[in-house]
Design a protein around this nucleic acid. Structure first.
Lengths: 231, 231
DNA sequence: ACGATTATTATGTCTATACATAAAAAGGAA
DNA sequence: TTCCTTTTTATGTATAGACATAATAATCGT
C-alpha cells in the first residue's frame, strides 16, 4: 500500500520536476484532474499545492489556459521587519535604548510635502539610539503626525522607544519603505560614533493608518550593517 | 437575502476589525466554527481566510489554542526582484548592456570559502554594466562556478548579460541576498562614473541549485539608487 | 475570410463530512 | 504539591461533489 500524499508532498514533487528541468520554463503542466489521478488524491489537494506554487511565483495559472512554469521568474524576497529590539535580542545581544531629543515643532515644509500635512500642522520629533551590547546599532529620527496620534504629544519616550509605542498604539498600518546608501552627516556620526562622510545604510519608512499619514522615520544603521534575506 | 460571502470577504472583515482595534493585539479570536456561524458559511471557508491572515503575519494560530491577533506585528516586506532589464524598462527608460571583462580564472580563496569550492576550482568571472537611458545604472561583478554550469565556460556574454543567461539555463535556485552600503572603490567608480569613496548601494547574491553553489554576484548601484517596497 | 455567437474546459471557490494532530486542560497516582 | 496519563478541543488537512468564471476553441452566418 502506497503512502497517502498531502498537498505539501505534491507541491514538493511538482517543484522538484520543475527544478530538475523535467518541466522547463514555459511548459504547460498537466491539469489538476490528471495530477490528482497520478498522485492518487482529490483535485482539491492538487489545487492547494498548485495555488501555493503560484503564490510563490513558480508557476502561472489561468482559467481554461492551465498552469505553466513561469518564463521570467520574477522572484520575490521577503524580509521580516521585526522591532529593533527583537532583531538585536535574536542575535543574542543585549538591547539598550536611549532617548536623545524630543520636541513638538511645527512640521517643516519637506515633511508637510511628504506626509501631505496642512500648514502649521504640529508634529512630535524624536531622536533616539538603539544599542546592541552597548555599541550604537541604529539611530532613529522620527516625526509623528499629532493629528493622527494625539496621545503622542505627551507620551514618555525615555523608557519605551517611539517605535514600540506606536506599534502598540497604532498596530496595523500601510507603509512604504525605502532603502539606500547615504553619506553620514555630523549629527548622525556623533550618535553612531562613526566618521562623517562614511557610507551608512539608511531605511526610511512612511506609515499611514488607512488614508491618514501617521509617521515618517529614518533609521541610520551603524557601520557594516547588512540586511539579509534568503529564498 | 444576504449576499454570499467568500473567503476574501471574511479575510477583509476580520482584518478590518483588527485594524479598528475591535480585536486588539493579543485578543483571542472566535473559533472557526463560531465565525462560520456568524458569516453563514462553511468552516473551510473561514479556515482559508484565517490561514491567509496567518501567512500575512496578522494573526497567530495554534491547534487547540485558537487564533489570536499578533502582539508585535512582524509584518513582512516583499520585494520583487525582476531582471535589471525589466526594472529599467518598466521605468520607461531605454535599457542597454555592455560587457566589460570576462575571464576563466581559478577561484580565489575568498570565493572558495564563500561558495565552498574545492581548491583549483575553475570559475568564470564576468564584469558588465547595465545602462538606463545611456547612463550607468548598475555594475555587475559575477563569478560562476563552472562545476555547476559547464556551458558557462564558452557562453557569449557580449550580447546577453550573465544574469539573463543564467535565468534561462538554471531556472530555480535557492539564494541568499545581502544589502549594504559600501564605499565606492576605484574599479567600480570608473565604470559607474561616480567618485571614489562615495556611498554606493550594494546587493550581493549567492545562489545554489539544490546543494551545488552556482554563482556569487555583486551588484553596485549608481548614486542615488533606492530600493522601494510597500506593504 | 471574417466577425459574432456558442460551446467547452481548466481553474476558482464553496460545502459537508471526516479524520488527524498538537496542545491545553483535567484527572489521577505518588 | 509534583509528575504523568488521559481527555478534550481548535486547528490542519483530505475528500467528493457542485457550481462559478474566465478564456480558449469551435461554430455559424454573412
Amino acid at each position: 500500500m502506497t503512502e497517502r500524499l498531502g498537498y505539501r508532498d505534491i507541491k514538493r514533487e511538482v517543484f522538484r520536476r520543475i527544478r530538475n528541468n523535467e518541466w522547463g520554463p514555459g511548459t504547460l503542466l498537466p491539469g489538476e484532474i490528471e495530477l490528482a489521478g497520478e498522485f492518487g488524491c482529490a483535485r482539491a489537494t492538487v489545487n492547494r499545492a498548485m495555488q501555493e506554487l503560484s503564490d510563490d511565483g513558480i508557476i502561472e495559472r489561468r482559467r481554461k489556459g492551465g498552469s505553466r512554469v513561469k518564463l521570467a521568474p520574477v522572484r520575490q524576497i521577503t524580509f521580516e521587519i521585526p522591532l529593533i529590539r527583537t532583531e538585536i535580542e535574536s542575535k543574542g545581544a543585549t538591547y539598550h535604548y536611549e532617548l536623545k531629543s524630543s520636541s513638538l515643532p511645527k512640521a517643516p515644509r519637506w515633511l508637510r510635502a511628504r506626509l501631505n500635512l496642512i500648514e502649521n500642522a504640529q508634529v512630535r520629533h524624536v531622536q533616539c539610539l538603539h544599542y546592541a551590547d552597548g555599541a550604537p546599532y541604529q539611530f532613529e529620527d522620527r516625526w509623528i503626525n499629532l493629528a493622527a496620534v494625539q496621545r503622542a504629544s505627551d507620551a514618555d519616550f525615555s523608557k519605551i522607544s517611539p517605535n514600540e509605542w506606536l506599534v502598540s498604539e497604532v498596530p496595523y498600518t500601510n507603509a512604504e519603505v525605502r532603502f539606500s546608501a547615504s553619506t553620514t552627516v555630523a549629527t548622525v556620526a556623533k550618535h553612531l560614533k562613526t566618521i562623517i562622510g562614511e557610507p551608512s545604510f539608511l531605511a526610511e519608512r512612511t506609515t499611514w493608518l488607512a488614508e491618514t499619514p501617521v509617521t515618517y522615520v529614518r533609521f541610520y544603521f551603524a557601520r557594516g550593517y547588512q540586511m539579509v534575506a534568503r529564498y
